[in-house]
Amino acid sequence: MFTNILFLMSAVLTVGGAFAVILTKNIMHACVYLLSSLLGVAGLYVTLGADFVAATQLVVYVGGIVILMVFAVLLTGGSDAQKENKFGLSKIPLMGNNKTYTIAWITAFVVFMTLIKIISNIIKYYKETEVSAYTATVEKIGMLLVTDHVLAFEISSVLLLGALVGAAVIARPRKRE
């Protein structure tokens, strides 16, 4: 009962946040709606019994990436000053106009028709199996990370180091020579 209510609230939060990101015209509001959508995904992880993944989602995504994006929005001003490009033609506004939205919806429709065929097959032939009870997953994940998936673990640490150094080098102010 409680899990059903949590599932419904999380699903509404996820889908509503995703559609609000599409429909809003303000980049700051889009960041906040993305925050609600990611919170909903974390709630869905909880209903699936993935407690460690839900906690990581909350800490890294909601607390880290969205805050980083809000900082980037604040640092870049978010206004399109010049309305014309270098050829003198009028530019598309920053958050898109009807033309770009039409192209995007047509693309989404094509992808929808392609994927719904696959998903309908899955739904049709999927047999309901008994679902395992909720157990703590932290210990199992910790054991798997240092036994079966240790190579991916080490590679991800190197990737994070590279991303950190790369971001620092790119964003560093350069001296005029």
């Binding site: 996820t14 889908v15 995703a18 559609f19 990101v21 599409i22 889009a30 959508s37 995904v41 530019k91 598309i92 506004p93 920053l94 958050m95 898109g96 770009t100 939205y101 192209i103 995007a104 919806w105 693309t107 989404a108 992808v111 929808f112 994927l115």
Partner: peptide, 13 residues
């Protein structure tokens, strides 16, 4: 979620 991501990625400049 996937379709919303595609629309946002294409429609925005």
């Amino acid at each position: 979620l996937f379709l919303a991501g595609i629309v946002v990625m294409i429609a925005r400049k």
